[in-house]
Design a protein around this nucleic acid. Structure first.
Lengths: 331, 331
DNA sequence: CTGTTAGCGCTTTCAA
DNA sequence: TTGAAAGCGCTAACAG
């Protein structure tokens, strides 16, 4: 592998000049610059990123730490991030924490150790990872989820409003006992969606019944179990607001398995869409999120933060949109 | 940020000794080692990976370059890779090439520049990226797809056999004119699956009719279009073998849109499963792949290759398994 | 078993 | 505008 000195020798200049040419430093004689470029070409020289990283003490990599690669919500989001990153000259590497704070911590350590230029993270509950990044001065943007007690750029959706809209829709569809399956109490999305659900009930003059609420894990299996638990309970709901897409799938599977007809015996609204939703029968009513836009926005915030470390953090809240399909009304 | 010298000073030893302790080099006095560990703790010292990388001229990162983050096939595979990587002391970063050779080339450049310890790649058609990695001496494992003319560790499934089994199943179910929607001719999987389909027809004494074959892009939309094109053609098929999961979804959506009843008017078998397949109606018959196992195996090969650069490359072929569901038989 | 020393390849003052 | 030289933080010969 050719080094910068080989190029310098070949071009008859110093390594410093080669470096200047390579990094677009203006004050270089065009003739010399041309000789350097020719030498680079000839030797097929590739700068050693490791040495450059060490010297500059940063890389041109962004880490995106997501909490579940298997959730299509994140894949669309990642596309949004990638598109912005590319046009800003960064490459994106994905890290899958699998909702495991330990794995998340590992990836934070990697991002720190490799001195990534920036990190976009959907934190799996604990503030610790985000705090470590912030303390080290790494530009960070939170996506999808908040963490309490830290001041940091964030991109969220209007979870409470979306959840309330979903619940109100179920009420308007004539359902009487509306339950809720939400996620881990440690996640802001789970809590906010639960709050929106509760608020909508209260606003409609309904009583909020703790017995109709389940906390689960935002995974398919958890949705299945929670629905089963709801069906086996004393007071059965006749509709359920399910606070994420994977759990909605699980809940539907449970209803199919138990021969509970949807939407007649049980109405369902999920949060976040599914791919190939059109093929799922009955078609699932959802609170749609602008996933690609979430990714784009987070990436833009990150780029700005990198450019200007001192500016005060901003939180962008994007709107959700109710997609009424078949599972939420009886007509 | 504390450096290794700060730790050395704090512990009253040399930087070399600190390095030895940190890297588990055996010949260190336990007492000194203990002092070093205490100093590390006290200063909250984190080794600078950039410096270490430069010195060792490699990182402890694996890159997994996949061709479509949106395809659940890859997400399961990634889990398999991660599990092995973790237990071998590597971290996995994901790179999404989106079936775009240009993006793939960029990520290869990143992997090379950052001197990743190893790369697992499902190449998007061209051999160029893989060749560059190999030429640079980077340990590489191919997954899911072959590239012609390079000798490299690979993990594949038995595409021809799986496709033939699917086609034979359609024949046995009484379908007469069986078509095929396959992927880009540049991808080995697309070609092998097409070959398996053709072979099965021939073996059954059927004629192979080029007019019933479509090459598409392994994406949902492409499957939709191809199915539409097949329906609009002079000789309509009464069953179709679709060579990947996303295109099968697209094809089904087209059939729903056109009011073609499945499996009565049209039988369908897809290649590779879908998540929440149980909810898709009618339930899709598929050629199942051991996705997690593919990832695990690739990771193991990579670990071995890193350990022993000179061993001759091996190709592991895993078995597929036909999952007969509702879309492929009329009874 | 431990310390001294010499770089890994690059960028960036500083002087010319 | 250019080059010489220092050094980012770590590891690995080589001595001792």
């Amino acid at each position: 592998m050719a080094t910068i000195y080989d190029v310098a020798q070949q071009a008859g200049v110093s390594a410093a000049t080669v470096s200047r040419v390579l990094n677009g430093h203006p004050s270089v004689d065009p003739q010399l610059a041309e000789r350097v470029r020719a030498a680079v070409e000839e030797l097929d020289y590739r700068p050693n990123a490791l040495a450059r990283n060490l010297r500059r003490s940063r890389t041109s990599l962004w880490a995106v730490i997501i909490s579940d690669v298997g959730n299509p919500f994140f894949t669309s989001l990642v596309r949004g991030v990638e598109d912005v990153a590319q046009s800003s000259g960064y490459s994106v590497v994905l890290c899958n924490s699998d909702e495991d704070p330990q794995k998340e911590a590992n990836y934070v350590t990697v991002a720190l150790a490799e001195q990534m230029a920036g990190v976009i993270v959907s934190p799996s509950g604990q503030a610790e990872g985000v705090k470590r990044l912030l303390d080290a001065g790494t530009p960070v943007v939170l996506i999808d989820r908040e963490v309490p007690g830290v001041s940091v750029d964030s991109v969220l959706v209007d979870n409470e409003h979306g959840a309330a809209e979903a619940t109100t829709h179920l009420i308007a569809s004539g359902y009487q006992r509306i339950g809720c399956i939400t996620g881990p109490a440690t996640l802001s999305t789970a809590e906010r969606r639960l709050r929106g659900y509760r608020q909508a009930l209260t606003d409609a003059g309904r009583t909020y019944d703790e017995a109709l609420v389940r906390h689960s894990d935002f995974r398919e299996h958890g949705g299945y179990e929670s629905m089963a638990s709801l069906l086996d309970a004393g007071v059965k709901p006749d509709a359920v607001f399910v606070a994420n897409n994977l759990m909605a799938v699980g809940a539907l599977e449970c209803l199919v398995a138990r021969n509970v007809s949807v939407p007649d015996e049980m109405g369902i609204v999920g949060f976040d869409d599914l791919p190939w939703a059109d093929l799922v029968r009955p078609a699932l009513t959802t609170v749609g999120q602008p996933t690609y836009e979430l990714g784009r926005t987070a990436a833009q915030l990150l780029a700005e933060r990198i450019g200007e470390a001192e500016k005060s953090p901003s939180t962008v809240v994007l709107k959700t949109e109710l997609h009424v399909r078949a599972t939420s009304h009886r007509d």
